[in-house]
Amino acid sequence: MRRPGGEPRVEVAAEAPWVRRLAILLAVLVLGLLLLLPLLAVATEALRRGWTPVVAAITDPDALAAIRLTLLIAAISVPVNTLGGLAAAWCIAKFDFPGRALLLALIELPFSVSPVISGLVWVLLFGAQGWLGPWLQERDIQIVFALPGLVLATIFVTFPFVARTLVPLMQEQGRSAEEAAATLGASGWQTFRRVTLPDIRWALLSGVLLCNARAMGEFGAVSVVSGHIRGETNTMPLHIEILYNEYQFVGAFAVAGLLALLALVTLAAKALLERSGDLARLRRPPA
């Protein structure tokens, strides 16, 4: 996701002003209708009775436990997928080997797997009726219906984000810079840190942030492995479902609003980073 900055040049090949205005209007209208309106609906429902019940819903001990759990899960899954994504992007983009396309396809696979399945596979594997279930039970190790299961399901769902953002960019950048550095005697780690990382850091961050946003918001997969114990294995999205099912609509939409807010902060951070990325690129002398 490279973003050359600067103002667009004045073009011979440009649309008539009315086409331009119409296109902008249409885009704003359609995106607003499709994307912004649901968010507005959440906010309206949450604030239906003012701020007091919103604050009460968010500071409820069970809600706080859900917030903590969600943040913890994201704090574990995002680094794992960042590390894996970096490794995958490095070997796919910088080396030729047979099966590269297959590897990339397999990395993208979790995108097309239904969230229900993403949760189910862990139950099939670690559940009491699953392959490793009896072995785990003998040792009193709980994976599904506890934190590890939630983390594994989240990692599965957010698996491709970092790799997917990095691979096309690193492929496009080629490997000549790294090869030059390596020929000059830089170690692998040095090459990576001094040559590769500066070029990919904005894409990396944007991938990480998307991964994080999705990790916090995942519902289907964690719902299968959670066990739904109040204050213990309920993440924020699950807590929202519980509140909703208890007819506490204001509370449900309040926590939903908070979660959406966390996601929006993430997205804003991404936009800001990309902007400073543009500036940094402008300051750098052209290669």
Partner: peptide, 13 residues
């Protein structure tokens, strides 16, 4: 991060 994951998976009980 590795450490956190390790403890999380091990301390599942």
């Amino acid at each position: 991060a590795g450490l956190v994951l390790g403890t999380a998976l091990a301390g599942g009980a």
